[in-house]
Design a protein around this nucleic acid. Sequence first.
DNA 1: CTGACATTACCTAACGTTCGTTTAGTAAAA
DNA 2: TTTTACTAAACGAACGTTAGGTAATGTCAG
Lengths: 197, 197
Amino acid sequence: MSVDSKEYILQTAVTLFSKQGFAAVSMRGLANSVGMSVAAVYHHFPNKQALYLEAVHFAFAKQASAFDEVWQAQLTADEKLSRFVHCLAQVLTTDVDFRRLMQRELLDADDERMQLLAKEVFQEQFSHLMAVIEQMGESRQIHFSALSVIALVCDIIQMQPLSRHLPGWRAEHEEVDFIAGQVLNLLMNGIKSKGCQ
Amino acid sequence: MSVDSKEYILQTAVTLFSKQGFAAVSMRGLANSVGMSVAAVYHHFPNKQALYLEAVHFAFAKQASAFDEVWQAQLTADEKLSRFVHCLAQVLTTDVDFRRLMQRELLDADDERMQLLAKEVFQEQFSHLMAVIEQMGESRQIHFSALSVIALVCDIIQMQPLSRHLPGWRAEHEEVDFIAGQVLNLLMNGIKSKGCQ
DNA sequence: CTGACATTACCTAACGTTCGTTTAGTAAAA
DNA sequence: TTTTACTAAACGAACGTTAGGTAATGTCAG
């Protein structure tokens, strides 16, 4: 079987779609990028839409195992949260294609694809995260708190190219460990980091 | 002058670009949406790129005055922060086109347009926000804390269509006042809302 | 106030290019 | 001999953009 060619096309498609978005990627451009003819791409995928959906699946599946070591039973809740935030910041910083494709899906996906995104990418980690937050003492707004953790990390990384042009920016603000540390500090103590603790 | 037609085209363009993105919007589709011919659109704008940039300007300029009442001198720092978070959540929830266009710019804009976005939309509010955070006692990571406030509100709203499919979701999670209240609680006290206070 | 003229705000119709997709064929592997 | 993995060439549709024309709306000397 030609699983090599197909995977190579998918990998290239993920990069192109994440950089340019669905509409801006042409089948000719993709075929050119993988060094094949257009018809060769159509040999592996029935049409552009199906290719895109499979590319999204492909990109998301790769991240499924990234969080496996985070939720180990013998850790304290605080440690689990810390590991999760570090891991999330690491993944979103390292795999730029994945992050951008996810952002684009948040903008463009219909409800059915949104459900896929929830189930395939978020649901498992989200449930773990909610359990940890419950252990930490929060009892009422567990869903919202878990969402806040993810949202905070995601958007801080997503806003990096913008925040570079805002007053007070320093290079270290874009280092994974710095981001994770600051986010954790905020989550544990709030903004007034001194008056609390 | 035909400022009416031009503004109407811009307004329609903002909606279309925010919903579909630059590449997916055609000049014919836009012309059809405003009930004009293609050439009529080209009478007002030299080309698609220039029309898009002007539409982005147009959408951003409308939001400039939304925060005017937030930073009044006689308020305490806590009150100013509270008002800002409420106002930001309100704007991002109400003006969907603005929010989506901003998200798309974060994905697609080059460094020059990112600078424009920083200067035209964020810089003024960001400076005010940093000043407030400094007043509240945070002294070291003012830039990062201010960024966190904005990122938290933005991404929670942006992830709404996804979070609907995650466990624990309730309808009230999408109400502006609820979002602002929860975000403020998190910012002031961290996740462990009881152990701190 | 009026007639001549210019400008504005649009129109229809077309330009060449690029798009997604298909058809027909080939060379190698099973 | 059938199936697999491809290629070259073409299909009609849609794309951004332009050319050329037509009413309506100023503008202003006489």
